[in-house]
Design a protein around this nucleic acid. Structure first.
Lengths: 331, 331
DNA sequence: TTGAAAGCGCTAACAG
DNA sequence: CTGTTAGCGCTTTCAA
């Protein structure tokens, strides 16, 4: 594979002229330009990306830290990131952190090593904690409220409130909540929204109706079994992810309960499968791809050196009512 | 951020010695080594990755071309790739090709630009077609049979045959097949396995029972509607992906048909949702993560310059029988 | 065991 | 408009 010098020789010009022809063709005389272009073709020349990066001090890479790539929701976020990054000429270095902070730090190191220009963190964790010269980071999806990072988030509290109000409006009074992991900001925000709605409706909180989960199918199924064993069964079940709701559905069937006749069920995320369960799932739709796109936009803004115009983007959610929730007939 | 020169000054040695201390500590005198290490810490020095790559002509990056990141099956393959690459000190540049050949070529270009050392292609397409000095590629999942690339694949034909035989053993004679895209090798192989099983059972092929799809929920639902409208309805439905099978389930419910009493249903892939549908899905389990891991292993082998020991890895499948298939009671 | 020196391939002043 | 020149930060001979 040939280098710029060979092209220069072939075209009978200096390497500087070749470089210019490639980057700023307009400053090169048409005749010269054509000669250089012909030489480029003849030599099958392609600039050495490593040298270009090295020289121009810009990698064109973005590191993305994802809790779990295989998750239906994050997969869509990643698709959005991917698309926006590509459109802007950036590449995406994907790291499935699997909740492992060491691995997360390892990838974050790439920025120190100048292998990437910035980071998109999809989890509420700061791998650069306490570092004075931490690189540019944008925090999306699960957000660290107290941090100064630019954020892209949903109003999870309002969303959870909205869904809970929907269940209340159907006459439900015993509404169970299958949460995310105990310490996750997502969990806390959604729990707050849920409790807010109940309080407004004058319903005292019942800790028995709260159950932690980890957003997976299995967690939803397991939590549901526990909740069904309560002396006074809930009449509605609000799961903090659609996957948990689909898991819940299995346990409900196992217990011989019909949805929504015996018990209403709702999820969160509106993944593709939500519309295909039996019955289709009432849920909160999140604009997953938009999370990715907006995060990239914010990061590129920072990288361009412009004063950051936005510190926080709050994306809209939508309550999607399908067949899994219905009027409370119980007790 | 400091560079190697500053560390050298701080430690009172040459830059060469600093470099050696970092790469080959054993060739440096212990006393010197310690002085250098102290200087590295003091200066908070981290080697400039771009310079290292440039100099050593190795990027440590692998490009992965994925048809669709959001797909439940590919998400698992990617997780496997990610994990194996990380363990070997490689990073993954992920490209969601969305079936767009131009985009695929664009990412493939990264290798020419020395921004990546090799490519893992998860689709049956050669972005380097006709190029004499094409970079190292490993082809996994959907494989281009006629190509010389090392491959990691499933025996799709045997898998489809095995599933079809399962249906035949249950007494089914009219078995419909919802395929993948018409020209995909995956489709052709699975179709061949399906037909082989029918032929062995002495059942003449019926083109009406074949329907193309694109592996999505929506495609499964749509194809099923068409198949149910046939004058003589099939008694079993074999979908080439679990997502299509779950989509099919919706149309079957819509038509008032019970599974498996009125019609047996089977999928392919064994995604997590397959065990949670109603009824749970009979399917072919693929070792998705292993596809990724083996592909990385093959690629690294090539990159290391060793003579390639393996040209093809065929991974095992497993027929998982769940509740969606049952004895044929129809007609 | 260490240092000096020569680049890797490219870009970007600065002259001309 | 084009060429000369000086590196970017690091690795790696080659001598000492």
């Amino acid at each position: 594979m040939s280098n710029i010098r060979r092209v220069a020789e072939l075209a009978g010009v200096s390497v500087a002229t070749v470089s210019r022809t490639l980057k700023n063709p307009e400053v090169v005389a048409p005749a010269t330009r054509e000669r250089v272009q012909a030489a480029v073709t003849a030599a099958n020349y392609r600039p050495n990306g490593m040298a270009v990066q090295f020289r121009s001090r810009r990698t064109g890479n973005l590191v993305v830290l994802v809790p779990l790539i295989a998750n239906s929701f994050f997969a869509r976020v990643i698709a959005g990131i991917q698309q926006a990054a590509q459109a802007a000429g950036y590449r995406v270095l994907l790291c499935d952190t699997a909740g492992d902070e060491a691995r997360e730090r390892e990838y974050a190191e790439l920025v120190y090593a100048r292998q990437a220009d910035g980071v998109i963190q999809l989890r509420a964790f700061d791998p650069f904690a306490g570092d004075p010269d931490a690189p540019p980071v944008v925090n999306a999806c699960e957000v660290l409220a107290e941090h100064t990072w630019p954020k892209v988030r949903l109003d999870n509290r309002a969303a959870a409130r909205s869904l809970t109000e929907h269940l209340l409006a159907l006459g439900h009074r015993r509404i169970a909540l299958i949460k995310g992991p105990e310490d996750s900001p997502l969990t806390l925000e959604r729990l707050a929204g849920y409790q807010e709605a109940l309080t407004r409706a004058g319903i005292p909180p019942d800790p028995d109706l709260l159950h932690p989960g980890d957003f997976t199918l299995a967690a939803g199924a397991a939590a549901t079994k526990t909740l069904l064993a309560l002396p006074e069964r809930p009449t509605a079940l609000f799961c903090c992810s659609d996957e948990m709701a689909i898991g819940a559905l299995q346990s409900l069937r196992g217990a011989g309960l019909r949805v929504p006749e015996d018990l209403s069920l709702a999820g969160f995320d509106d993944i593709a499968f939500a519309a295909y369960s039996d019955p289709p799932l009432t849920t909160i739709a999140q604009p997953a791809e938009a999370f990715g796109q907006r995060a990239v936009a914010l990061l590129l803004e920072i990288l361009s050196g412009a004063a950051p115009t936005t510190r926080e983007v709050v994306l809209p959610f939508e309550l999607v009512v399908r067949g899994s929730t219905g009027v409370c007939r119980g007790r």
